[in-house]
Simulated scan of single mutants.
Amino acid sequence: MEIGVPKESKDQEFRVGLSPSSVRVLRENGHNIFVETQAGTGAGFTDDDYKSVGAEIVSTPDAAWNRDLVVKVKEPLTSEYKFLQKGQLLFTYLHLAADRKLTEHLIDCGTCAIAYETVEQPGANKLPLLSPMSIIAGRLSVQFGARFLERQQGGRGVLLGGVPGVKPGKVVILGGGVVGTEAAKIAVGMGAAVQILDVNVERLSYLETLFGSRVELIYSNSAHIEAAVREADLLIGAVLIPGRRAPILVKRDLVKQMRPGSVIIDVAVDQGGCVETLHPTSHTSPIYLEEDVVHYGVPNMPGAVPWTATQALNNSTLPYVVELANLGTKALEINPALAKGVNVQNHRLVHPAVQSVFPDLVN
């Protein structure tokens, strides 16, 4: 099979769909890989690195896109819609619940679109291709939050870890899944006062085995959210409903009650976000001030650490890429996890969660 690896077009997205070591494995399986020139440069991989493992370097985006299987990191942007074709396999993060325009175009063009974030191992509610980036985004959320709390960045001037005689900053995390857990690990390590709110009591019990008394674990309801958010120096949105738009848990009226210079980082922004006042931003311009609160809404946070993120992503995606390359669409019949990843196929929107967001697009 011919496999294309385009250079990512999203603002400061330096990750790449396949690393050289992944290309080598695919070449050993008999496939031809076409990598757009400098696609891996931002992640530390040169064109020569790809050539050395058997890839062909192509000079234009269409030469990478015009292949049987296209492996990316982020969703196609409007400028890339023209490359999508009938019968083509596209394997990448899509987050269609927050992008009606892309959903409509994928239906129209006939591409078989498989989303990393909805590949799901049956019976375990595990999202193996979302998890590695969730780990990174969770850890980065506190790292970035600490930076934007600095006065020079527009924040309150709070040191999350505090100092002897001065209380630490307060980190409130909405959601105790992978993102929330990893955010809490970093926040606790910094010495912050940390609260996690979640609706799953079993998950809260599990988190108690991880953190003990170092993290305050609270059942999530509107009253508890309001009380926690008002006192937060750093609010992290870490809510995930696979395939669906994130629910709005923090309304504008509540944001108004936060202290000026507090920081909101919503990791769920690529699924629409769970804070009403937050909208997507970019690595070039990551923050804005609304209701005197600093808002950070970069949807591709792991792109800030592409060397780490590309390898972590490839560790998880490669077995599925090999299966798709070896078997084509037959892999979707054999592998239930991959089948769950299909969002659009044969001009139809097929993923139930995305269908629930766009019922008028279901035929």
Rank of each mutant, 00 (worst) to 15 (best):
Y116W: 06
P319F: 04
P359I: 03
L149K: 10
S59V: 10
I114Q: 02
E226T: 13
Q257F: 03
V188W: 06
T277M: 03
P76M: 11
T92V: 09
G273Y: 06
D266P: 01
A97N: 10
G44T: 07
V255R: 00
E231C: 00
N29K: 15
A39G: 07
A63N: 13
A337W: 06
E202C: 02
G189Y: 11
D233V: 03
L210R: 15
C274E: 04
N300L: 12
R252V: 03
E2K: 15
G303H: 07
A246W: 02
R67M: 10
G145H: 04
V239I: 15
E75S: 12
V298L: 08
P132W: 05
Y93V: 04
N66R: 14
K330V: 14
Q152I: 15
G154C: 05
D108T: 14
G123K: 10
S356I: 08
Y320W: 09
R139E: 13
V199W: 09
L217V: 07
M133E: 12
A146S: 15
P280F: 00
V119F: 02
Q355H: 05
R259G: 00
V357S: 05
G341T: 12
L26D: 05
T308P: 09
A55K: 03
V16E: 08
E75H: 09
I135C: 13
Q257Y: 02
F144E: 14
E333C: 12
S205T: 13
E202D: 14
V35L: 05
P132H: 12
L160N: 04
K185R: 15
I196W: 02
E80R: 09
V23T: 08
G328D: 11
N200V: 04
L77Q: 13
T209P: 06
K330N: 12
V158M: 11
K256A: 10
Q12H: 14
A98P: 07
P132C: 08
S222G: 01
L26A: 08
P20F: 05
L160Y: 04
S220P: 11
D233Q: 05
L361R: 08
A223S: 14
D48I: 13
I186A: 08
G180L: 07
P352V: 02
Q143C: 08
I334D: 12
I136M: 12
V53C: 05
V163L: 09
G272P: 01
E182G: 00
E56V: 14
G169Y: 00
V158L: 07
V53W: 10
V25N: 09
S52M: 11
R67E: 09
A39K: 08
Y206A: 15
T209C: 10
L84E: 09
Y296N: 02
L89W: 02
L332H: 09
G87K: 06
E104I: 13
S52R: 14
T284G: 10
A339R: 14
I107S: 04
D47V: 07
A353T: 01
G165K: 08
G176T: 06
H95M: 05
L26H: 04
